[in-house]
Amino acid sequence: MIYLDNAATTPMSAAALDVYVKAATEYFANPSSLHEHGEKAKQLLETCRREISKLIHAKPSEIFFTSGGTEGNIRTLQSLYAANKHKGNHVITSVLEHPSVQTFFLALEKKGVDVSYLEVDSNGLIPLEQIERTLRPDTILASIQHVNSEIGVIQPINDIGNLLKKHGVLFHSDCVQSFGKLPIHVDQFPIDAISISSHKIYGPKGIGAVYLSRDTPWEPVDLLTTHEHGFRPGTVNTPGIAAFTTAASDAVKNQENSLNYIWELRNFFFEEMKEIQHLIKVEGSKNQQLPHIIGMGIKGFEGQYMLLTLDRFGICISTGSACQTGKQDPSIAMKALNKSAQEAKRFFRISIGLQTTKQEITTIADRIKNSVMGKGR
């Protein structure tokens, strides 16, 4: 198998798996229990909280563990909105957001809240001047992702945050695709909250975290909740959190070398595709791009055909966000970029991982070229 769907999920690293087994064996007690083993599990939980906070330059009290990116996005936005809805009736997001974020804002619209959906340019970037035009005196909250999961475009969240802060607007960013791959320093970013996830960086599924600035007001969504300081209900997954922390620490420690390696593989892929480059359309920005994600289309071929063709040879790619699988509509990114129905059908995504080799890149490039150049023979 050649696995090139790492934006959907990554395999667990050996280090994360080892820690998971050890924690599940030795720290299985409920951290909320008052006995000795409960206290032992609690100490491990708080050690992980401190470690995650260091990785993004936050305070331990600003980190809340969740079940992953989707819950992190929705629960954070609900908590921020609940505490600040008295200040105004206008919120902002973009047309490029993850379905979990879109779900929250659609629910607000049904309650009569004014929601502005920012458009993107041909590269998938949100122009700052558009944000400035959209802001109103009653704007209270904005959520704009850091990196898009389908085309890998990097939004300038530092500039966006500065603009929103100047107008007193709370700012949340979905950093699920960027955490562990790009530097995130919340003490330098003008940002109130971010969501991150474990299984995008070689940790276990079902675990994530949220950063909520201690200077930002928020309210619990569920009454009588005591876990995670009232942020979410349910017994915490201590082994998963320990494994997540291990994976996150490794990702941040090796961030620069990993980024250089992925760029090398990405550039090598396009070198290998030279023969058919005139047929290829790569989506996203050349200058503000996460190299791990290659969102592209090939003239004359549907993305679904390419996925099924490569799958026959044990090569795993996708036709967009895994969260949209099974829907007949074009991907979120393709709709946001105003692609025609034909262009949207061509789209497929290759997402490179740290386990990917040059030989695997050569293999997938050859398979794609054979499919394209062999058409009609």
Rank of each mutant, 00 (worst) to 15 (best):
Y3C: 07
D5K: 14
N6W: 08
P11H: 05
P11N: 07
M12D: 07
S13G: 15
S13Q: 10
E26L: 14
F28C: 10
A29F: 03
S33D: 11
S33K: 14
H37E: 14
K42G: 04
Q43G: 07
R50E: 13
K54V: 09
I56H: 02
A58V: 02
E62D: 12
T66A: 03
T66C: 02
E71W: 10
G72W: 04
T76E: 05
S94A: 12
L96H: 06
H98S: 14
Q102K: 14
K111D: 14
S122F: 06
Q130E: 14
I131N: 00
T134N: 06
D138H: 08
T139M: 09
S143K: 05
I151T: 05
V153E: 04
V153D: 02
N158H: 15
G168C: 09
L170G: 00
L170K: 00
F179Q: 07
F179R: 03
G180C: 06
H185Q: 13
H185P: 02
V186G: 01
D187R: 09
Q188D: 12
K200N: 11
K200G: 01
G203A: 05
G208C: 07
Y211N: 06
W218V: 02
P220H: 08
D222C: 14
L223A: 14
H227P: 09
E228W: 02
P233R: 03
T238R: 00
T238V: 15
A242S: 08
D250L: 13
K253D: 08
N260A: 15
F269Q: 01
I280K: 00
I293V: 11
G297Y: 05
Y305Q: 13
T319P: 00
A336C: 08
A344T: 02
K369N: 06
R377D: 08
